[in-house]
Design a protein around this nucleic acid. Structure first.
Length: 295
DNA sequence: TTGCAGGGGTCAA
DNA sequence: TTGACCCCTGCA
């Protein structure tokens, strides 16, 4: 069948989508936006999202999704992989200097996933002063301890728990997942979200500045985490999450000197505008993979 | 083998 | 503005 310009065929739990452009699983899953997709022996990625398990690989111009149906694709994965967005156009608009050109050529297949905002919130609270393998491990442990089981063949996977599941646990019960000092933030944030004192659905109705402030009222959420949550949940694209890697690449390649967080934010808003979030993702991936700015 | 520094930020003083 | 913070890894 044809769905929004993509030709889809299904064969015993595997679907093939032809005509997908600007899509590279390595770039998408290794660019720091998600924590539940794991590279397999054959180079494909298996992940848990939206209470489903899926395996993704690219063969030529065809996207192969295993353990999935056409219905899942239409209801879940089309949106999750942001396939309705024209990344070629975004890249053309962002290719305004040599630095961006290099970053885009390097991470040409990046797409910003439209992840569940609740899971993204908790995952990025965990990211504070932490490393990716550790964040992945803790998210996995939280899911194993408090999430629902998903059966796929012989294997049991665990969905990320809902807010009521985490709100019902104590800080001590969360600490078995090795989140360290971030567990108290997760516990308090879960209670606020579950009680609807912090309703994440309201974020869609707010402008970017308001949405940022709203999120920053939650324990464990500062400017960086708020921007990550907005960007990686597909809620806002005009944010520029600035962590040490983005700071390094901006200082080394654009400012040619030390620059403050505020300066970088203002420059990004002015220079990249509505596309700041996409620019950030290309720059971050480029900087991290090439260790730009590391002494 | 053991010990220590430091990491993709946030909070509190 | 600055130090502390859990846990783990890398490196003397």
């Amino acid at each position: 069948m044809i769905y929004k310009g993509l030709r889809i065929t299904e064969d015993t739990g595997t679907i093939t989508v032809r005509g997908v452009k600007d899509f590279n699983p390595v770039h998408i899953f290794e660019c720091g936006q998600c924590f539940r997709w794991k590279r397999q022996q054959d180079g494909s990625y298996t992940g848990i999202a939206k209470k489903k398990v899926c395996n993704v690989k690219l063969e030529g111009e065809s996207l192969i999704l295993s353990n999935s149906s056409i219905q899942d694709f239409i209801e879940i994965w089309f949106d999750y992989f942001d396939l309705g967005r024209d990344y070629s156009k975004i890249k053309a608009n962002l290719r305004k200097d040599e630095i961006m050109a290099k970053a885009i050529d390097f991470g040409w297949g990046i797409r910003i996933l439209r992840q569940d905002i609740w899971e993204t919130l908790i995952s990025f609270i965990l990211s504070a002063n932490n490393r990716i393998p550790m964040i992945m491990k803790t998210v996995e442990e939280i899911s194993r301890a408090y999430g629902s089981e998903i059966y796929s063949g012989e294997t049991i996977y665990y969905a990320f728990p809902d807010d009521e599941n985490l709100a019902g646990t104590t800080i001590e019960q969360l600490e078995i997942c090795k989140g360290g000092f971030r567990c108290k933030y997760i516990s308090h944030t879960s209670i606020l979200v579950n009680s609807l004192n912090a309703d994440l659905k309201l974020l869609h109705g707010l402008n970017t500045a308001e949405a940022r402030r709203y999120l920053q009222n939650l324990p464990g959420v500062g400017p960086k985490v708020a921007d990550c949550v907005l960007l990686y949940s597909g809620t806002k694209q005009d944010v520029f999450p600035t962590d040490v890697w983005v700071k390094r690449v901006m200082e080394e390649l654009y400012f040619k000197r030390e620059a403050s967080f505020r300066e970088i934010q203002e420059f990004a808003a002015q220079y990249f505008g509505e596309l700041a979030g996409f620019a950030q993702q290309y720059l971050f991936y480029y900087a991290r993979e090439n260790r730009i700015g590391v002494r």
